[in-house]
Design a protein around this nucleic acid. Structure first.
Length: 275
DNA sequence: ATTGAAGCCTGTCCGC
DNA sequence: TGCGGACAGGCTTCAA
């Protein structure tokens, strides 16, 4: 479900709602979602901890405590909300985890497909333990550098679609934005990555910055089930150029947008504009 | 070391 | 209306 712009929107929302509140009690209704930690240990570590702030890196949502970092990955369907105990913003059947907060409200996690995960590590070495130290830069604020992306692309035999989805290359791009970025950069998703020219690498950097920053400004893309905290919908779906537009006319050249599986993911592109 | 495919789960949509 | 199959915004693990 959510990619960098959606997770950023959720992080900003949650930070406004729960920063400086403490967790009084924890209930987990689907233990497998507690990842790489033992459930009782997890509960012990978050109990009576004050949430200092909520932030994100790429698709990873992070709750910072004094000594711990709690990392939530929403995968396809994960959703957070803050509400009174008896009120559910999302389908109550999908409630997987809830924290009682010191102001009497509840911080709740819902996940229909049970793909999402949550884990907790000591702050000192959470990057190594969680594997987040392997993530590439967020494609924002003129990052990555040309040299960085060129080095990553030079010897890669993977398809470009897979390359831009690789979180160790660029962090935070998912299928929707990958489709949109490659369209904006006029690059065919089935090209081999090492065939990228310098000019095309620069185009990927510029397109990824522009698209993700615009999507953040619009609070993300709302299609299928995605809503940010407490049911707010994003607006970037109105600016999609190729994603979900199978057989519709390309806004640039008028030919039909193609959909096919590339690198295992539903891929939309214009075979005239992208080459 | 890379790359591709399967697996994790459930809900929704489409065609018969 | 009911049923089966395809598909969904992601990641990890396993096999080649």
């Amino acid at each position: 479900m959510p990619e960098l712009p959606e997770v950023r929107t959720v992080a900003v929302f949650l930070n406004n709602k729960v920063a400086n509140l403490s967790i009084l009690n924890t209930e987990c209704f689907f233990e497998k979602m507690i990842w790489r930690n033992e459930v009782n240990e997890f509960k012990k570590e978050v109990s009576n901890q004050k949430i200092l702030r909520v932030l994100n890196y790429g698709k990873y949502l992070m709750f910072e405590f004094k000594d711990w970092m709690m990392i939530s990955h929403l995968r396809m369907e994960g959703k957070w909300s803050v509400s009174p105990k008896e009120i559910d913003i999302y389908n109550k059947n999908h409630l997987r985890l809830q924290f009682e907060l010191s102001n009497g409200e509840y911080l709740k996690y819902y996940d229909s497909r049970k793909f999402g995960t949550i884990e907790i590590w000591e702050k000192d070495d959470y990057l190594e333990l969680s594997g987040m130290n392997k993530l590439g830069p967020e494609p924002l604020n003129s990052k990555p550098s040309f040299k960085y992306l060129k080095d990553k692309a030079t010897n890669s035999n993977s398809l470009i679609k897979a390359f831009v989805l690789d979180q160790s290359v660029l962090c935070g791009i998912g299928n929707i934005y990958a489709n949109e970025i490659l369209f904006a950069a006029n690059i065919h998703p089935e090209r081999i990555t090492k065939s990228l020219t310098d000019k095309e690498i620069i185009k990927i950097i510029k397109a990824s910055n522009k698209i993700l920053e615009r999507a953040i400004a619009l609070k993300g893309t709302s299609i299928h089930s995605y809503k940010s905290g407490n049911g707010e919908v994003g607006q970037f779906q109105h600016e999609l150029k190729v994603h979900l537009r199978r057989d519709e006319e390309c806004f640039v050249c008028g030919s039909k947008i193609v959909k096919k599986q590339v690198a295992g993911r539903g891929t939309y592109f214009c075979k005239i504009c992208q080459h």
